[in-house]
Each structure stands twice: as C-alpha cells, then as structure tokens.
Design a protein around this nucleic acid. Structure first.
Lengths: 153, 153
DNA sequence: TATTGTTATACTCTATAACTATA
DNA sequence: TATAGTTATAGAGTATAACAATA
C-alpha cells in the first residue's frame, strides 16, 4: 500500500494536496487561458475552437476535416459543425480533395485570412496577459514541456 | 501593422501556427490529462471535479464552499451540486462554520477518506501515463511554471 | 473491410441571473 | 451594502452510435 503523505501543509496559499498535482495545475492554467482567449477572440466573432480551425485553414497545410479532428483532438462530428459555421460566415470553404473523393480540404477565404490576422493579434495580447509573469526563457521552456505532453507520438 | 510571419513550416508534424501557441498546447495537454484522469477515477465513482472537492475536504483545511469555488475556479452554484452529490454518497458532510453562520465547511467522512486514498492512487497512475515522457526534473519545472500561470496572485 | 464526412442524441461543463439568510 | 449559499436556466463542450459515399 503506497499511501504516501503530502509534504505541503494543508490550507497553504497554493492549496494542500491538489496544489502539487500537475493535472490540477494544468486544468486551472488552461481555464484561465481559455477564458482570456475567448474574451479576446469575441471581437472577431470567434471562440477558441473556431479560431483553431481557422488558423489551420489559413496556414497553407490544406488539412482535411479528419486532420483537423486529430490535431485539435475534436470528434469529427464537432469539426463538421465548426466548419459549417465558419463557411456560413464566409471565412473558410470546403474543397474536394482530388486524391480522395471522400475528403474535404478546408481552406481560408481572403476574408478568413483578414479575420484571422486580427484574431491572432488579439490572441497574442491574451497570451501576454496569461503568461506575462513568465520570462521569455520560461515561456520557451514551458512551450517545449507542454509540446511533449500534448503530442506524445 | 504587426503582421508577423510564423517560423514553423506549415503542415509540419507539430502543426503550423498553432503548434507554437502556448494556449493551444495547454488546451491539448489538458484534454489528454483530463481524459486519462477521468478514466482512472471512474473506478472510484469520481470525476476530476468531484475528486478535487474531495481532495480538499480530506486535507484538513476545512474549506468553505466559497473557498472551494475560488480555488477550483468553479461557480459557487457548481460547488453546491458537487457537494450535494458527494454528501449523498456519504463521502463528505457540510458543517456549519461557528465563526460565520452563512458559511458551510466541507469535511470528508471516514468513508470519504478511504475513497480518496484509492482515487488518489489511481490519479497518480494516470499522471504517470500522461507525464511519463518527462524526467522528474522536467516534471518539477513544469509544475513550478504551471503554478505561476495557474495562481497569478 | 476500413475510412471520411455527416446526422442525431445525450451528457458534462460553464456562465448568468435572481433569491435567502446572514454579515 | 456586501457575502455565502442556493435554485434555475441556457449555452458551450464532449462522447457515442449509426449511416452513406468512397477507398
């Protein structure tokens, strides 16, 4: 029985047991980041998920909806709804993949690129608010560590 | 106009533009961590949020529901529902705060402590799966960096 | 037989407003 | 006047199953 005692004093400023659990710290940091991000993206009429789809539609990689689902860790059915919405607003279009007639490739329209540029600037401002207490070096280290956790392939 | 070009090649393995955004990496890492955590906690009949409440009820700090809401970044109304559920299962009890008759203090029952010990062990196994590719030193660094972001007080 | 996109459905999580009792 | 807890409700996010078209 490995019932291990926690070193942190209960009721401390950073919380007792939970304050040491990476899962909890990750969840709380993400909640703050998501709230700041959604608030910043609101002026562009986007939220975190639609911004993510638009970003990948802009960057020239011509992802299929399946690619988007895998990379963003969304269910394919969620991608359908998100692309529907972006397409209805004229920000992206579905193009048939010549190599695979089942697949749709999602690409940004010129309007989509403009909206993305504006949203990207807002997202950077939000990141500055959320990660502003970290030095540039610390941000680089955090990015590298998170990438390992986020993409365990 | 600070329309800045991204250095990463579009369509790379770690994705184009998004692969460098801490907000996205944080969200994806959290999604993986949350999924692994919820799967591990299922055998104890808990999920991430109820586990968090139980953990704080166990650790001796005698938090009020407001304390729980602030620390876990939940709305007070969500805490009501979560504590209702844990109390109905006999894992925690509400005790009146002698110093403030408005406040309820949430404390674990003996059964709650047992369930927590079991759930905590499962949560540690899940953390091992999610963060297993990081060395102990890297985990310490990640924990420290996340704590700064998660608690910007 | 497996995969892409799609529709439908249910559940969990999040956010807001309003009310009560105490401070 | 403000705070702790509660109720109610709506919206956003997540998860699953089933189906048609194509590989």
């Amino acid at each position: 029985m490995s019932t291990e005692q926690i070193a942190t004093p209960p009721g401390g400023a950073a919380g007792g047991a939970l304050g040491n659990e990476m899962s909890f710290l990750l969840a709380r940091a993400n909640a703050l980041s998501l709230a700041a991000g959604n608030a910043a993206l609101a002026t562009s009429g986007l939220r975190a998920r639609s911004y993510s789809i638009l970003a990948l539609a802009v960057d020239g990689s011509r992802p299929s909806q399946r690619d988007l689902a895998d990379f963003l860790r969304l269910d394919p059915s969620q991608v359908v709804a998100l692309v529907d919405d972006l397409q209805a607003r004229g920000l992206v279009v579905r193009e048939p993949d010549p190599a695979d007639r089942r697949a749709n490739v999602v690409v940004a329209t010129p309007t989509g690129r403009l909206v993305y540029e504006q949203a990207h600037a807002a997202a950077r401002t939000a990141e500055q608010q959320v990660f502003g207490r970290l030095t540039p070096g610390e941000r680089d280290r955090l990015t590298a560590l998170l990438r390992v956790v986020a993409f365990p392939d």
